[in-house]
Design a protein around this nucleic acid. Structure first.
Lengths: 249, 249
DNA sequence: TTAAGGCCTTGATCAAGATCAATAGGCTGG
DNA sequence: CCAGCCTATTGATCTTGATCAAGGCCTTAA
């Protein structure tokens, strides 16, 4: 516990985290000085690793530094539904909760920045702006989850696939700062099974719908994990609504 | 703006609100003294009234005093998905947001306790425990929404209906303090259409599945809006999982 | 009292997506 | 190099829930 403090800047790697502001320090306002690194550690998981199981007691919480993790719930007979996709900067775990209610699984190699829950909670208690930030993030997640409910309950398989691709495309575009309106290329760091669990479909249906979109030239598969979208608008049209359906976590 | 303060007690109607603690004052810790009534007003909506439309700018936020309201989202072609059921004590609107992202509609006659958003936000800023409480409530809602995603994505029509009935039964049981393990009777303040929108089904499927459960004696319909469950456990078995699936808002 | 409209139920048919099954391609390790 | 495994694709068939359609019941209003 060295207890040093550091200053966070919007676009500069902070002194303690190997990533940009929003990523690890999503909990702080820009330019705020917070004493965090004293209670911080890192851990990396391989693709497929279980980070936490539903019902686990957790002593740590943290955020995604790099990689993609998934949040899901499984019925006793094995049916599984993904309920969140965790991308860099997203939060894992709950301040104030004893158990994780969902399974957390690494979809790709994933590095987490972890805090001892108890210490993080103490930090929250003494830092109102941090709590503010958490509330804000949670409200965003809630909106995203509800948007996803619309997809799960009412969209066709084709619309579901198009929506997911649009989200992934947007995400990549946001990272690379390119405008998403002209042809874009992006990686799809999910297996067909993960997509199926995400969309409430079977892998066969996912595969078929992707093949169809490919045949119709709406998307171009460079390989199973890399996709190019010549005309983003026509992909959006297939998604069923004009909203950005910004499901992140 | 009288600005008087009042003390809230867990089981006693508070001096300013016609309902019990958790109901209107879900934002306060029990026994906490808060200056709220200065900025408060009430409004009642008839069944079917639209309380707010998606995209509306809102100047007020508040909570449900009595009745049931729904939160939903509609696709351009009219497909609708309910994304939340708002019961007494639930929160309507967002501190810190300009627009409501979902339609809010009264399912029954509904009374809201409203605060000017600006003033409520100021209250939050000066009352850390209130923010804490909001974060807590939002996390609960997020868990519920995710639980509901499992239902929408992976459960059969029969399981969906059983899950909804179990939730409504539990809710009534909680209000009347009865143990939900023996025969219970409860009201179902939703039309078949609302249930369909809630569960991602059509009204015909809802009707058929309810008829089936009736024929199998798992439920007894006293009339279209009142149901008796002779054996709660057997209803739960039909719901597909043992979790309480506690979807509230 | 009858007419009209809203809500619910039930039946017949249809289609989207699930299920079952076979095959192909890519990696990994021997 | 090939065997074994994992992931993805594609085809054939089946099932669940949607769609289309008719009618019943209840409430409200003329």
């Amino acid at each position: 516990m060295t207890g040093s403090t550091f200053k966070i800047d919007q676009n500069v790697r902070c002194s303690a985290c190997p990533i940009r502001h929003r990523a690890v320090c999503a909990y702080c306002e820009p330019d705020e000085v917070v004493q965090l690194d004293a209670i911080k550690s890192y851990r990396t998981f391989a693709a497929g690793d279980t980070i936490a199981m539903a019902g686990d007691e957790t002593s740590k919480i943290g955020s995604i530094v790099s990689g993609v993790a998934t949040l899901s719930r499984t019925l006793p007979d094995g049916r599984r539904q993904m309920v969140g996709l965790l991308l860099p900067s997203d939060f894992v775990g709950r301040p104030g909760r004893r158990e994780t209610p969902f399974d957390v699984v690494a979809a790709t190699e994933t590095t987490l920045c972890l805090f001892q829950k108890r210490q993080f909670e103490a930090l929250i208690a003494s830092t109102p702006s941090l709590e503010r930030r958490l509330l804000d993030m949670t409200l965003d997640e809630l909106d995203s989850a509800r948007e996803w409910m619309l997809l799960l309950g009412r969209k066709t398989a084709r619309e579901k696939i198009a929506s997911l691709l649009a989200i992934m495309a947007r995400r990549d575009a946001a990272l690379s700062k390119a405008t998403p309106m002209d042809g874009i290329r992006f990686s799809l760091p999910l297996t067909r099974e993960a997509m199926a669990d995400y969309l409430g479909l079977t892998i066969e249906t996912v595969s078929r719908q992707i093949s169809k979109l490919k045949k119709e030239r709406i998307i171009v598969l460079e390989d199973a994990r890399h996709i190019r979208v010549p005309d983003f608008i026509s992909l959006l049209n297939e998604a069923g609504d004009d909203s950005d359906g910004g499901f992140i976590a």
